[in-house]
Design a protein around this nucleic acid. Structure first.
Lengths: 157, 157
DNA sequence: CCTTGAGTTGAAGTCCACTTCAACTTACAC
DNA sequence: GTGTAAGTTGAAGTGGACTTCAACTCAAGG
């Protein structure tokens, strides 16, 4: 066991496919030394970078933003625990926000289930720049903003 | 104000772009009558379908699954509040699960920030079939399962 | 009538995060 | 020295959820 990992080893240890690791490298998220025969050899510290990438993805951050965050790490030295803590902390509010939104959606869903209304207005939905923010595809709001459903109260759906 | 909406009206009221509404129709998620001149006219009930689609997307359900869910609605009659309640309830556990995972990630992140470890193993991360389930792109696990990082305790990252 | 904004279509394009492929080279255990 | 698993590359493909485009047609107010 040396201090350098092959791509296969890093893949197994990180749970990330080799093709994804190469992709990350192309995007500048991780780096590798090369052997005389041009094969990648990863320093152990890269494991932490990959860990950070995966965590960040869970939080809902794009690879591009992750790259920006990683770029803020000191280049001269191996990042310290404090460095990593700072980066992780920077996602904290986004994570909180996502949890808050989903929780609110759940509560609203419960309310809607109670009354069976599923009305766009009272639900968390269609609250642009709030619920629609930051979630994956399909959550882009193109039009200015939704308008209340003027169905006369009591009409049959 | 009649009981049929143009695509533009439905778009404004639902907050979904016309192109997306046409796309939903192609996928069989919503339907529209046509005027003599071949323009779409939506029954008011379609607003609820669109609402359901958006809510479901928030929960993290794919359009394909949403279509399957919508297909389970009675065709003969306008869906009742109970029908919608049943569909919404079917997402409930997924929503709960997502909230649970994100919350756990937050807690772990706090822990990791405390110690600065960011180690793959103790964090929620790389807990295949658990954390990695159901979340957007980048969360596919290809390799069997990650292996513990055997960095000797006390080695400098 | 005529203009103009809204709507129609199919095909192609976009974005993100990867994966797959083919053709070839290295590393290493025996 | 050799067999084979593992690695290399660039280019192209995938999937999901849409958007954009060009070339038209429709609907409705003046």
């Amino acid at each position: 066991m040396q201090d350098l990992l092959t791509i296969g080893e890093l893949s197994v240890r990180s749970g990330v496919a080799p093709s994804a690791l190469r992709y990350y490298e192309r995007l500048g998220l991780i780096r590798a030394d090369r052997t005389g025969g041009n094969q990648r050899r990863y320093a152990r510290a890269e494991l932490r970078r990959v860990a950070f990438i995966r965590i960040s993805q869970q939080v809902g951050v794009s690879l591009d933003e992750i790259r920006a965050a990683l770029d803020s790490l000191p280049e001269a030295r191996t990042p310290s625990p404090q460095d990593w803590a700072r980066l992780s902390a920077s996602w904290r509010s986004r994570l909180d926000e996502r949890i808050r939104l989903l929780t609110r959606l759940r509560d609203d869903l419960d309310g809607c289930i109670g009354c069976g209304c599923l009305s766009l207005q009272r639900c968390t939905l269609n609250n642009p720049g709030d619920t629609l923010a930051g979630e994956g595809p399909g959550a882009r709001l193109v039009l200015p903003r939704p308008v209340d459903d003027p169905t006369p109260a009591g009409s049959p759906a």
